[in-house]
């Protein structure tokens, strides 16, 4: 697999100060939802992996349903961005190895840390300063993946 196929999108819209402020506002609302619904809580993640409450499954499940309706509506009605650009959603490259192995590795980390990347940021804001170490460690993990990538089976 060539490296270019994995380059992120290069859309240039909204890189104005106003546009970036909009993204920050969306992120802020998202962080508030994350903390107030307690999906950032280690206890909630443990409760989920022990099948002791519907809370997390309800959140993920209803989020997927609402997001799915939104995405399918955008495709069906050919809705454009605020700047009038067509919306393209690139399909994930089909293979299974990387999704199984990467997915399981991520899951091991998710249950150990009790947080995935979004909650790491929210917890840092919530004053759990030791989560800065988790963030640096996750960046290190990403870096090591990038360095090993040419040698890893995908």
């Amino acid at each position: 697999m060539s490296t270019t196929t994995q380059q992120p999108e290069h859309a240039e819209a909204n890189l104005t100060v106003g546009g970036l402020f909009g993204y920050m506002t969306l992120g802020m609302l998202f962080g508030i939802i994350f903390v107030q619904s307690e999906v950032v809580s280690w206890f909630r993640i443990q409760e989920m992996f022990r099948f002791e409450s519907f809370h997390m499954y309800g959140i993920i499940g209803s989020a997927v349903v609402v997001a799915m309706i939104g995405v399918q509506a955008i495709k069906y009605f050919d809705i454009r961005t605020l700047d009038g650009e067509p919306i393209r959603i690139n399909p994930k490259q089909w293979s299974s190895y990387r999704y199984w192995v990467g997915g399981i590795m991520f899951g091991l980390g998710w249950a150990l840390l009790g947080a995935c990347p979004g909650p790491i940021f929210a917890l840092i804001g919530g004053g759990y300063s030791v989560m800065l170490v988790a963030l640096l460690s996750a960046i290190a993990g990403t870096w090591v993946y990038g360095a090993l990538r040419p040698h890893l089976p995908h």
Binding site: R98, V101, G102, G103, I104, M105, F106, G107, L108, G109, W110, A111, L112, L113, G114, A115, C116, P117, I120, V133, A134, L135, L136, S137, A138, I139, A140, G141, T142, W143, V144, Y145, G146, L152
Partner: peptide, 11 residues
Amino acid sequence: GGFLVGFGARY
């Protein structure tokens, strides 16, 4: 845990 989250997410 943090390392695995970062490595696994990109993999």
